[in-house]
Design a protein around this nucleic acid. Structure first.
Lengths: 255, 255
DNA sequence: TAGATTGTTAATCGATTAACAATC
DNA sequence: TAGATTGTTAATCGATTAACAATC
């Protein structure tokens, strides 16, 4: 049996920078691989087969092999995948090595929650500043990052390269603030405002809209479906401890 | 020309509660229709054609008609769709009329940000309480909702029907807290912890995992792709004001 | 070598788009 | 009525799964 790492230095397995078209469906799954591989590394696992990973992730082994082979062969027949190597490759695909710098515009609860999280650090994204118009926020240091006045933004952007802006301003200010940032040369946005902003609003702009409400709606939909299923009696076995479906009309908030 | 509302009381257009199988792809798009229809109502628009809505949403008119017809005919030939009526139907599909009650477990920045947002109210979801273990948070009132001690949770659940719990606790406590809530009879979760929790962990459990980091990764990926495209010179027209790609090695945080 | 597991092709399945008859 | 636009079928496209030869 070979050593765990010997094969890593094997034949040049597909130049990542010259890869051909990869479908959006595959791309959207990469971050999930990233997360699971991270967890496997944390657990000290050295190798994994597509079948084992598939059962962890609740997908088919076929899909995993198909996905990874869009970018070249990362595994080895009879062995499986080396966890560290595969993780490194996924990181490379996702551009983690770039180490982009971003700012957060809007230092409200959400902006502060994001900057304090380990999310950016884990992905090699550095938040270099927060911006707000609220005097109560300006000057604060949140999670090691200083909150600056929006008035300083232009000057700041001239001094510090900003690859990306996280938008956590109120919805009704989203368009205006985004426009302002675009004029300062910022071309990538992670938009939490709930206002769906469009990539066509600026030449070559990357806009990643996050709609938390959509996710809540899907949850609501599923609760509704379950309730309908129970009511129509199609669900034979009566669920026990089910408080949601039959409930009195009285709902006092009890504050 | 008929009045704007006359046709609403027309023939029974498909009983929503008896509908047949609808594909997940369609379901996932419903919240987006919900958002756009809301905006149209806000703008006072009375009717809209599939073509007009399609160009607003950057999808095909065909897809919109196909989607809506999964649930029965909501439109009228030669006229289009009545905005109010269509909105009402989408709400019905998504179960907005249910008016579910939820709690938020974890009163950190994210939990507080969520409870203060208008997200729940807009979707007829009521947050009846926040819970935390931090004495500094317990007793506070955030966005009209009281923060209670986790120790009171069991008693609270016995008194108040809780359909859903929002998980905003730290990642390493996610599994434990979710288990605790399941034992108290809560069967639906909106999980922000970053720890991917599984539906199979409880009988009939609905788990909506939110992975903000995945969205950040896709943004990072796209920035990477753009940078590669520029480097390989395939992008003929030189982008102006592009600070992200060529940058000095010095990156001081400037705090 | 024999066993295991990938890489890859072919088959299936599902989702989107195009087209047009129905009808308001 | 004529024009507009849906509802719906058929055609295309894309994504997933199954199967197995290649190979470590």
């Amino acid at each position: 049996m070979q050593t765990e790492n010997s094969w890593i230095s094997g034949s040049e397995q597909g130049d990542l920078s010259e890869r051909t078209y990869v479908s959006p469906a595959v791309i959207r799954r990469l971050p999930r691989y990233f997360r699971y591989l991270r967890e496997l590394i944390r657990q000290g696992k050295m190798r994994i087969s597509s079948g084992e990973l598939a059962s962890m992730m609740h997908v088919t082994a076929s899909q995993i092999r198909q996905d990874l082979n869009c970018f070249g062969g990362f595994g080895q027949q009879g062995y499986g995948y080396n966890v560290q190597y595969l993780y490194a490759k996924i990181c490379e695909l996702l551009g983690v090595q770039m180490g982009i710098q971003g700012i957060i515009v809007g230092a409200g609860d959400l902006g502060r929650a994001l900057v304090r999280s380990s999310m950016f650090e884990k992905r090699n994204v550095e938040i270099v500043s927060l911006f707000d118009v609220d005097p109560k926020q300006i000057g604060r240091v949140v999670g090691n990052v200083k909150v600056r006045d929006m008035a300083e933004l232009e000057d700041f952007c001239a001094r510090v390269p900003v690859d990306m802006a996280v938008l956590t301003v109120p919805k009704d200010q989203a368009s205006e603030v985004a426009g302002q940032l675009m004029r300062l040369g910022i071309t990538a946005f992670w938009n939490f405002t709930g206002k769906e902003l469009n990539e066509s609003e600026g030449e070559g702009v990357i806009m990643e809209n996050v709609h938390l409400g959509d996710s809540l709606m899907i949850l609501n939909y599923r609760l509704c479906q379950r309730a309908l299923g129970e009511k129509s009696g199609k669900n034979e076995k009566k669920k026990q401890g089910e408080g949601a479906s039959d409930r009195t009309a009285s709902r006092k908030k009890d504050l």
